[in-house]
Every structure is written in structure tokens, then in C-alpha cells.
Design a protein around this nucleic acid. Sequence first.
DNA 1: ATGAAAGCGCTAACAG
DNA 2: CTGTTAGCGCTTTCAT
Lengths: 328, 328
Amino acid sequence: MGHITLDDIAQDLGVSKTTVSRAMSGKGRISEKTRQRIKDYAREKGYRPNVQARGLAQQRTYNIAVVSPQDSCVSELTFFHKCLVGITDGAEKEGYNVIITVERGNRTDELEQIVENSKADGVILTRTFYDDRRIEYLKSSDIPYVVIGSTQDGDSVRVDNDNFGGSYEMTRLLIEHGAKYPALIGGDPELLVTTQRHDGFMKAVDEAGIEDVLYFPGSLDDGTVTSDIDISMKRDVDCFICMDEEITLMTLTALRTRGILVPEQISVASLYDSALLTNGDRSVSAVAYDEMYLGQAAAGTLIRLINNETVADMTSNSFAIKLRDTTR
Amino acid sequence: MGHITLDDIAQDLGVSKTTVSRAMSGKGRISEKTRQRIKDYAREKGYRPNVQARGLAQQRTYNIAVVSPQDSCVSELTFFHKCLVGITDGAEKEGYNVIITVERGNRTDELEQIVENSKADGVILTRTFYDDRRIEYLKSSDIPYVVIGSTQDGDSVRVDNDNFGGSYEMTRLLIEHGAKYPALIGGDPELLVTTQRHDGFMKAVDEAGIEDVLYFPGSLDDGTVTSDIDISMKRDVDCFICMDEEITLMTLTALRTRGILVPEQISVASLYDSALLTNGDRSVSAVAYDEMYLGQAAAGTLIRLINNETVADMTSNSFAIKLRDTTR
DNA sequence: ATGAAAGCGCTAACAG
DNA sequence: CTGTTAGCGCTTTCAT
């Protein structure tokens, strides 16, 4: 018995394929009566439209493509995976499936393969490089795409966390909890995300009337962090706010080596939560974003884009401030 | 100019679509001369066959589906991701793409959606439950599928690591390096993988003429592990071989609490490597399997299955014994 | 409101 | 060795 087709239904019901098609898709005028009759019969027979045939007729695949990072750095991976769960969720809700491909450096082969073979109607990029060739490529082929995270590229539709808001809230809360002189540490100053988090931090300290706050951008190695800490201690900093989980871990290690107690002498918080921050003994206060929601939003946005609806960049303000062991 | 079709080429070259189709696919008799002429022209024009159209004609999608775990336990995730990289690799090599879907407990909805809508030609399961409803479902719908890892189900085509070989090699090597009386700890005795690893271990100790070896199956909580250790120390065990990374970490913690030095007083090795075992200070000896290769093999096997070629279970003997800090 | 007919781009008998 | 002819299952003008 295999699969029943649209034509079968038409014949059984003595109507034309067109009518059945219209009844199922909801497009075109059709009397409510026949529509119901057809839909009922279709359900009864367990009819499933053949997505490929529909696709061929409409030049669509009802697939979206997602590019996965190749390497398996843990925090990158959990971020990506949570996004992916959200993306498939959002996609399947709209009748789309997710095709996955793995990035191979800053190259476009794997994307080209998908786009040229029209295996997907749109693309989601979950992290981008500085001069991302994939963005160039996606722009030139005119396939819809959405970027998750902060890109410099102004032409791309972006879906991102509220980095400003998260940073602001965390800083505000720590000040409320007694921090007198917080310092900000880490982050590549050329990245948009760094600017956003810095601005959120600044807003909170400004509102609290704190002046001459310390900001140590960069700080990519232990040496720099250590000297940053030394400077801070002389200036009576009582709270480190770290740009990301990596810098957070370096800061904690450096403080431990220096014999400085956390949170007794100084509070430490991360502006980005990660599995690494709640591992076993240490449990670090952090801003936790909802990546799954981010993924869903990205999928939704992309599908709207595919349907030629107008879309704008969107910022997910779904985050939580997790105050854990490293802050008072 | 968009996309050039098979028909365009036929017209330009004054041949029939069939001939072009044959030239491109390699199926059917065709003179080497015209084949070259057509292929050259196609390449020159940048012709890309429309996969959807081909699919519709052949009832194929040139997609395979992979089910991703929903949760994000780190070791599960890295395992899955490495497999995924291998799978996409193997699939793309054969002209297939990978559709991903996320498991929602022991349910089949997400799979049904893909199978019923014929969005993929085959399925890869990367981990299975005891009474896996997805396997039942896949069997009943007659879509090809392969299972990565060890399943009890004898009817399914399996692609797995050489658990026996890895366990044997690790044990053999540790004995060679001086272990006099190794003990095996952990593992759910109802799982196939446990049996396989146990057998490998036994082979090595038997060959070394060691008798009355200790085996502690189960040991899922700290209490049990601690008592296992106590028994072992009385019997002068000088080497713990642990079934997986979880039991390894528990064993190490228990040994530390007991004040027993690793590797000075006792060696510890894991029969399964994981990111958690090389984290920071501790770096545990372990059997490292090549998951990427596993993924590639699974994709290859599945595609052969799709093509109605005969396939058998396959065991990847691509593993490495990593002797690190916890063994002498 | 419904139907006829022409595709979407490719494959696969069946002829020649 | 090559061409003709029907599809695959659905959508979409254009009539009626």
C-alpha cells in the first residue's frame, strides 16, 4: 500500500488534483465544504504530501543548512549544540528540516556544495570569522542566511544575545550586593561582543556613580592577567568582571596563585556562562544566556526571510544572572 | 542565467536528454567520445544536476538522517560531535548530505517526521536505549539504518569500536609495564560493551598467567567504589582498569580520599578516553578510539545499505592506547 | 468554485 | 550506441 498520493485522493473523491492541492495548502479559493471533505479523507487515509515533489514544483527543499564548527573545544561545542537543538525545534515547527555540514577552516566548499545543489533554502551560520568568506559567498549567491552571534558585517541579518543587557545587569547586581570598585577584564577589543559587554558594564558603573574604573582589554595570557591583577589590587578593586569563561578561569587561577581568596577578598563573575564554570569544586557566577531560544529565533527568522517577509536583526533578551560561589 | 539544466545541454549539443543523463551518471552504454564531449561542455557551462529532480525520479533524497542526543553531557557531546564530523565527511564524499534531528526521550516522532515525509534515504542512530522504540520503528518502516555503538539487537547493522581489542591491548601493555595484579572495575554487566571489554581484559590476564583476578561490575556510586578499593588493597591490587571515564573519575576521587598515591602505589587506566580525563592537572591513561573514523564507516555502511549492497557489522580497530600520568 | 494542462528537472524502460 | 516517451507527485496559470 505504501504511500497514497494527492492524485489517489482526487480520484477517490472524484475531484481534480488541483482541488486537493488547494484544500491541503490553503491557497486559492475553495468552498469550505469540499475543503473539509478532502481534509477529512486525507487524514483518514493517512496522506502525507511528498515533500520532494512539492519542492521540485516550487523550487524549494524545506531544508535549512547549519554550519557546525569542526573542532571540539568544549564550550564552543555546548554552545553550538544548544543552538542546534533550538534550530531544529524552530525549523521542524515550520515544516523544515536541518541539514548539517562541518566547517573546514575559513572555506566555502561545504556550503557551495549545499547551495549549488540546492539542498537547502537558507543557511544559519553559528560563528563567523573576521573576514568570513562564507558570508561573502552567501551574499553573492542570493540564498537567505542568518548569523547567530555578533558579526561586524552590517548587511547580514543577525540574531544575538543581549550582551549589553546581560553585562549591565550583572554589574548592577554586583554593585547592589556591595561591590564598591569593580574592574572589567579581557575581551578582544575588535570584536563587537566586547564593545557591547563593555558598554553594559560602563552603564552600570556610571549609574552607580563609580569613577575611574579599570578596564583591561586583551589579556590573553597568564602573564598579562597576573599583572592586571597586581595593578587592580593596588587600586583596591573588590570585584572582577570577566568578558568570557576563558579569561574567568585564567583570572581565578592567577588569584589562587597569588593567594587571594575568592569571594572573601574579591568577587569574580563571568559575562558568559559555560559548562567549564560549574565543573566540580568551583562554581562561578555568570550571565547565562538561553542558546536554545537563540537557535529557535534564528530558525524562525531565517524561515521568514525565505518566505520573503521582512525581518530585522533580533536580540534575545532571554538571559539569567547566576550568582554562585565566586561572588558575595 | 541562474541554473543550466540537463535539457539545455541536450539542446545545445543536439543530443537527447537521455544521452546527457547517461553521460553524467555513467549508467547505460554510451560512446566514450560523446561522453567526453558532453562532460566537457557540462563542466564548461558549470552544470550542476538538480538533486531534487533526480531524487523525485529515483525516489531518493540523497540525504541521510542522524539523531542527535538532546542533553549536553560533555563526554556524550564530544563523542557525538566527532561521529558527526565523520558522518558528514563520509556522506558528502558519496554525494549525500546529513539531516539532523534531536531525540526527545525514547520517542519516535522526530524520526517519523523524516521517514514519512521521505526526507532521507537512511538513518544513523548514535546511541540506543534498552528497548529502543526507534529501532522498532525503523525496522517496521523498511528504511535502511545502522547503529553506532553496541546494541543487543542482533538484526540491526552495527558499527562499533573494537572494545575487546582496546581492552586487551591496554591490559596487556600495563602488564608488560609491570602490573602484577590488575583489577577490573565498573560497567553495567547487561551491556554488550561491558562484556566485550571484560573479555579483552580476561584474555590479557590469562595470557600473562595471572589468576584469581578481581572484577567489580556495577559500582555506580562512590560508596561501592570505595569498598571495591578496600577489598582490592587487601589483595595487593596494583592496577585498576576502569570500564569508562565516569567510573575512572570516581575511582581516582576515592583513591585520593583514601590517600593512596597514583601512579606510585597503584596505576589507573580507563577503557574509554574522554575530554574529562585530560582536563588540567590530572591526565588519565586511556584507550582512545577514533570516533571520526567510526562516523565515516557508519555513513559508508549506510550508503551501501541504501544501494542494496550487502553489508555486515563492522568493527573499527582504529584505537590508540594513551599512557599518561596515572600509569607507570 | 473547480478543472485541464503544462510544467519543475531528471530517470528509466523500451525501441530503434 | 542513441532517441522517444512516460512518468516521479505536486503546483500553478489559465480557462470555465
